Amino acid sequence: MITECFFGDRGKRRVTALALAITVTATVFLLWQSDEPVSSRNAASDLRGPAEPDGFVVGGQYRAWDEQGNLQIDLTSPRIEQFEETGTAHLDTPRARLFSEGSPEPWLIESNEGSLQQNNEKLELMGNVRLTRQSEGREAVLETEVLTLDNSNGTVYTDQPVSITEPFGVTRSTGMKAWIDERILELNSRVEGQYETVR
């Protein structure tokens, strides 16, 4: 089933801004670590083991503004851990507010965990993933357990069950893929809908 995308007009810029925010945070860690001689970094990594991060931030908050000074993104995480060897950053309970031009209400994105793979621009959100979009006083909510944002392809996808709740009804499916620029949402299988008729 293919329908107009839940993500709206400026979705790619929002996903790009979110990925950029997390990438900037991770880059700060890498720059901080790069002053250290390679031999001492390797020795420290061997001592702490592969499961321990190379660096972390507690109470992290990232904000970005556009050229006119309007807030575009506000991303928070109580703890962000950087793993140099795998090129990943782990985020505890990431929360983001994404603002778009012409819309007074921000997008809200939240999950229990997040993992950014720096080499391929993928952000994986895990556990109680929830995207909320307000538009003209109406709320649309997408919920799933795992959601991947692939910034390089401009796609968002999951193979897990998905629920999309809008004022007029609820749509459920197993798996979905969205192409943000094209505003297309493809629901993969076991699609069910429950809708109220307008009176």
Rank of each mutant, 00 (worst) to 15 (best):
E4D: 10
E4R: 07
C5R: 13
R10H: 12
G11S: 09
G11T: 06
R13Y: 09
V15N: 03
T16M: 11
A17C: 06
A17W: 00
A19C: 08
A21E: 01
I22S: 13
T23P: 02
T23V: 07
T25R: 08
T25V: 15
T25W: 09
A26L: 14
V28P: 04
F29D: 04
L30K: 14
Q33M: 03
S34R: 09
P37T: 13
P37G: 08
V38D: 15
V38L: 15
V38C: 13
N42S: 15
A44T: 08
A44Q: 09
R48I: 07
P50K: 13
G55I: 06
G59C: 03
Q61W: 09
Q61I: 15
Q61H: 14
Y62T: 02
Y62N: 03
R63H: 05
E67P: 00
L71N: 07
Q72F: 01
I73D: 04
L75W: 08
L75Q: 07
T76R: 14
T76V: 10
T76C: 12
T76I: 12
E81G: 07
F83R: 00
F83E: 02
E85K: 13
T86K: 08
G87N: 12
L91S: 05
L91E: 11
T93M: 05
R95T: 04
R95P: 00
R97H: 13
F99K: 06
S100P: 00
S100N: 13
P104R: 04
P104V: 01
W107D: 05
L108H: 12
E110V: 11
S111Q: 02
E113F: 10
G114N: 05
L116I: 05
Q118N: 10
N119C: 09
K122I: 14
L123Y: 04
E124C: 01
L125G: 04
M126N: 06
G127E: 06
N128H: 02
R130N: 01
R130L: 01
T132W: 14
E136L: 07
G137M: 06
G137P: 04
A140F: 11
A140Y: 14
E143R: 04
T144S: 07
T144H: 02
E145Q: 02
L147W: 06
L147K: 00
T148E: 09
D150E: 03
N151T: 06
N151V: 08
N151Q: 12
N151D: 14
S152F: 09
N153D: 15
V156A: 05
V156D: 07
Y157H: 02
T158I: 10
D159Y: 10
D159P: 07
V162S: 10
S163W: 04
I164S: 05
T165F: 00
F168P: 05
F168Q: 09
G169I: 01
G169A: 07
V170K: 02
T171I: 04
R172L: 01
G175L: 01
G175F: 00
K177Y: 01
K177F: 03
K177P: 03
K177S: 08
A178Q: 01
W179P: 11
E182K: 00
L185V: 06
L187G: 00
L187W: 03
E192M: 08
E192S: 11
E192G: 03
Q194G: 12
Y195F: 13
T197E: 15
